[in-house]
Amino acid sequence: MAVAVYVPLLAALLLGLGAAPLSRLVPPATAARALAASSVLVAAATSFVLGVLAFTLLGKLPPVAALGSWSVASLSAADPVPQLVGGAACAAVLVLGARGLRAAVSRYRALAAVRALCLSLGGEPGQLVVVDDDADDVYVLPGARGRIIASRSLLVALPADERGALLAHEAAHLRHHHHRYRAATEFAAALNPLLRPAVAAVRFATERWADEDAAQATGDRTVVATAIARAGLRRRDTRAITAGWRALVLEAADSAVVARVRALLAPPVRRRPAALLLLGALLVVTVSSAVEAQRDAEDLFEQSRPAVATAPATTAQR
């Protein structure tokens, strides 16, 4: 237990560090799926071992010990977890649990707002809605009734083939439910801040996924690349003029736009089974460590029970 309980935390650190490279090294659809699923699994494992750690401290409180009928003295003697660590784990469970809850609630509210907006817009799911706006912008409102939203100025400015590429990109977001991968990873990162880099990595992977989907739909990766580059430059130009509300949006230090254009102008990314195997191994170790930690904790509490407490079980067996 002294070791196993910390392994998932180390795994979260490694996944956080490896998320960005992985999102660029393997095909984007694979990267998005693998990263979102791993983040959720690792977050679950770390939450679980934090819970186990916290309970080793809570178990030493007399009322809890009385309830479980184990001895505080023998538990304290056998427990390999320092009290400081137990205390930190208790605090972490409270804080991270609250963060997770808040993330889930705000996501639910946002999706409800988007749904209401989609309903009020009328029309069919997946249909384009043109916003009468001079500020270049295009995005999707996610969900089953999702819509593609594009400003008139951007649609008018792009040549036909690039306009088609842009629409295909947005349709891919809706069709593959990309918001779910993002939401899952954000929830995981709320439960474990070490996973924060995975949020940006999954975001990037879903954008690349939609880019490659659009390339397949239009049959031309270069057209998608030029559409992104042109729209990106135009959006910057208009942003300088009509700052206003848009100025509030956070400026990203390293934009993913350039990376996406480069990726489309380069040959498609090869499959890399080795990278995925490595990730798989990390997950197996994480989950088995969490299970191991739980077993060890159970043994610890069992051993701290006086013999009398286990006596009835033995009689019952006979």
């Binding site: 947005e170 990309h178 954008e207 030029t226 992104i228």
Partner: peptide
């Protein structure tokens, strides 16, 4: 930012010349 899947991120100042070059190249 949380909910909408945007086509474009904000560009940094250094991105603009790079993007112009890539566009010409493409």
């Amino acid at each position: 930012e949380q909910v909408l899947a945007r086509f474009l991120d904000e560009l940094g100042p250094d991105d603009v010349p790079v993007l112009r070059r890539l566009l010409r190249q493409a």
